[in-house]
């Protein structure tokens, strides 16, 4: 690679190495590594994709192919809290569009926009797999079910006023949720610290709590 590669933080490098060790074929690590790249730069950048390509031994364009296929990889900066409102069929029938409008209004943004204080981005998403608890919303990919337009406004205000370090699904559900599709079981200890999902060693909020 002749192009200059941005250097990642020591923590990011270490996470990358941990991830690479999980897969017998290095290129299988492309998707989790893209989340690391996303955390390093706030969103997926060309430098980030080049770094991933170098780590897994493919070309940058092959990494970009993956990174542009999935909408959860953000290629533009987003706010600290990414609020994703579902408007697919179940949520649509139960008022998802009103929730979206309310969230946008509270944040002062158009759909897909980021508030002036860079804290909140509101986006419209396709089905996030919570039809039983529609309308559903995610904050940094942490799920809330049974959200109403009023609750959506509360949610945006709460995010603005308390700026939590970590967002936790269970906490959000308690504060802003309504009827859940079913009991998900034991409380989920990990939350998200950035607009990337919190699972495994990347995006995990363990250290952030």
């Amino acid at each position: 690679m002749s192009s200059p590669i941005a250097t990642w933080s020591a923590e990011g490098q270490e996470r990358a190495q941990q991830l690479l060790a999980l897969y017998p074929d290095k290129r299988s690590a492309v998707m989790p590594l893209l989340y690391v790249a996303s955390l390093e730069h706030g969103h997926v950048t060309n430098e980030g994709m080049q770094q991933v390509a170098e780590l897994i031994g493919v070309t940058a364009t092959q990494v970009r192919s993956v990174a542009t296929f999935y909408t959860m990889y953000k290629h533009e900066p987003v706010g600290r809290y990414l609020v994703s409102v579902c408007t697919s069929i179940s949520c649509h029938l139960l008022g998802g569009d009103e929730v979206l409008d309310a969230a946008c209004g509270a944040a002062g943004v158009e759909v897909g926009g980021t508030s002036e204080d860079d804290l909140v981005t509101v986006e419209r998403v396709e089905c996030i797999g919570a039809c039983g608890g529609a309308p559903a919303v995610q904050v940094n990919y942490e799920l809330i079910e049974g959200v109403t337009d009023i609750k959506a406004i509360d949610l945006i205000d709460w995010l603005r006023n308390t700026t939590p370090e970590v967002v936790l699904a269970d906490e959000l559900q308690q504060l802003f949720g309504g009827q859940k599709s079913f009991d998900w079981g034991v409380p989920e200890p990990d939350g998200a610290i950035a607009p990337v999902p919190a699972f495994g060693p990347y995006g995990s909020a363990e250290e952030g709590r």
């Binding site: 060309n46 994709m49 080049q50 070309t59 364009t61 970009r64 542009t68």
Partner: peptide, 21 residues
Amino acid sequence: DPLITFNDRGNHVQILTFPNE
């Protein structure tokens, strides 16, 4: 030389190189 491939999804799938490569 895998320097061109599919980018994006759905209605917007397109063949592209990496920017500036």
